[in-house]
């Protein structure tokens, strides 16, 4: 009774989670803005709850009439449709362990509560990391060299 209480004053005072906390997913970009996801579907394969739906498509490097290309990622393919159903997701993290390009990561964000089922199926646009200074909205050609350079870790990207 005469000791300090252990209560936290959420939401006025939000204590940060542990660094490894499994929170909302994020789809990352290379420093030039291209998506890291190559549509390989390994995250969907690894998912024990079948919460991830991926549809891949080919990148297209041919130049259109206005000089635009159809390149979204730094590989042959990219994830055209990418959905995570947070009503199914058990946040085990097998998807991020399966991702061979560090396209999919888990952030520490945990405030996912919403009032409709439909809004809890996150689309690619909800999951993609925001464009940082120096990044260009895809589609655009690879600006950092050929695709080997990307995966050999020459560009440190967001991890540092």
């Amino acid at each position: 009774m005469f000791r300090k209480v252990v209560t936290e004053q959420y939401p006025k005072e939000k204590l940060p989670t542990a660094p490894r906390f499994h929170g909302r997913h994020q789809l990352n970009r290379w420093p030039d803005g291209l998506e890291k996801c190559v549509g390989c579907e390994l995250c969907a394969w690894a998912c024990p709850a079948d919460a991830i739906y991926v549809e891949g498509a080919e990148n297209d490097d041919s130049v259109g009439p206005d000089g635009e290309t159809g390149r979204y990622s730094a590989g042959e393919r990219y994830g055209r449709v990418y959905q995570i159903n947070y009503l199914r997701c058990i946040l085990c993290g097998l998807c991020i362990e399966a991702c061979p390009t560090r396209a999919l990561t888990m952030t520490n964000e945990y405030e996912l509560a919403d009032d409709s089922r439909a809004s809890l199926i996150y689309e690619k646009s909800d999951l993609l990391a925001p464009l940082l200074p120096g990044m260009e909205q895809p589609p655009h050609p690879m600006l950092l060299g050929n695709d080997d350079d990307y995966y050999r870790g020459e560009f440190k990207g967001a991890e540092q």
Binding site: H22, N28, G93, C99, T105, Y151, G153, E159
Partner: peptide, 21 residues
């Protein structure tokens, strides 16, 4: 090989380089 960066937790760049490159 998970590692934590400013973009959250995901496979480390070393592991990516190893399997992809």
């Amino acid at each position: 090989q998970l590692s934590i960066g400013s973009d959250g937790m995901g496979n480390s760049l070393d592991h990516i380089r190893h399997i992809m490159g």
